[in-house]
Design a protein around this nucleic acid. Structure first.
Lengths: 170, 170
DNA sequence: CGTTTAGTTCGGTTATTAGCGAACTAAAAG
DNA sequence: CTTTTAGTTCGCTAATAACCGAACTAAACG
């Protein structure tokens, strides 16, 4: 059936995305799955019980991981009048926050890379083996340019996304 | 003294780089420190004992982690005539291999991202809430372009680096 | 052949992670 | 006021990671 195919596909995607977030965003398995489920669900949010049922996890672990995700600013919830349940969803601010974090990470990598290549230049000079044409020195320069380009593109993407979200709200 | 400042700086950099590799390259603490030490040491390599002494690690752990690094193609060693010791160093092929792995990772992220946004479009269409101007759809497109740009730059960097290394060898 | 050198392998210890069930709580419903 | 709902908190357990020391090995030195 139509709906069954979709939810089957959803379940598979949750696992695939889950594995991805586990490593790339350094989340616990359950956190990664909760996050994946929310990413793939409607924007209005889903209930605690839906999460417990679809992920076949315990209430306790679900609660703990949901709190972790909320304090990290990844997940938030909204409520509906006359309904005691919370509707959990990906925090609307999260896309931009995540881009900001990525920018920070790359800037950190850039600084560290510079520190390392400065150190190696100092070492080479001390041993009188320094030359501008050393492949290590050349690579360091190219890599530096690469990082700067990624950062530039990320900042651009962040700006675009911010205006996109602001337009939506108006 | 001159040498002391340098080695002091080196020790600090090993720790800093170590922490970085631990998380970003998903290495065990000791593997990350061995790799950092090799990155910051002369290109000809350093001995097993030097590693054990500078990192204040046990011979057993050093051995295990060196083997791990070698089977991952990150570290290799060379020998000197009339000298039983191995001189461990960063594998010369490793820079290019690492770039290749990064390209693969980004390509994987790109595919997954496409899969997710296709799924969400399908969901929207099924619920009749699809529109080209949805911010989520717009962001997905921008992000896709960003990833493609990163991949393009990485491939470019890889080519440059390969020729750099080939020139060196000739 | 016995000893040193240069590592390797094995068994064990400790710390951390990730989840679970059971008991709990605070608000609302009956 | 009792019961249900919607989660939360706590204590425990199983799995895994990361390292260590001690015993081992294989080549080479004397």
């Amino acid at each position: 059936m139509y709906m069954d195919n979709l939810s089957e596909e959803k379940k598979e995607l949750i696992e695939e995305l889950g594995v991805y977030f586990e490593t790339s965003e350094d989340m616990s398995p359950l956190s990664a799955r909760i996050f994946s489920l929310l990413v793939l669900s409607e924007i209005n949010g889903i209930t605690f019980d839906t999460i417990v049922e679809t992920l076949e996890a315990s209430k306790s672990s679900t609660s703990t991981n949901l709190q972790l995700l909320q304090t990290s600013g990844i997940v938030s919830y909204c409520t509906k009048p006359g309904d005691r349940k919370r509707y959990f969803k990906v925090d609307p601010k999260h896309i931009v926050t995540r881009l900001e974090k990525k920018i920070e990470m790359w800037e950190k990598e850039r600084k560290l890379h510079l520190k390392v290549s400065d150190f190696k230049i100092k070492l080479h000079k001390q041993q009188n083996t320094f030359s501008e044409t050393l492949p290590g020195i050349q690579f360091a320069k190219n890599y530096s340019l690469f990082i700067e380009d990624v950062i530039k593109n990320l900042k651009n993407l962040k700006e675009k996304t911010s205006t996109l979200i602001n337009e939506e709200q108006s």
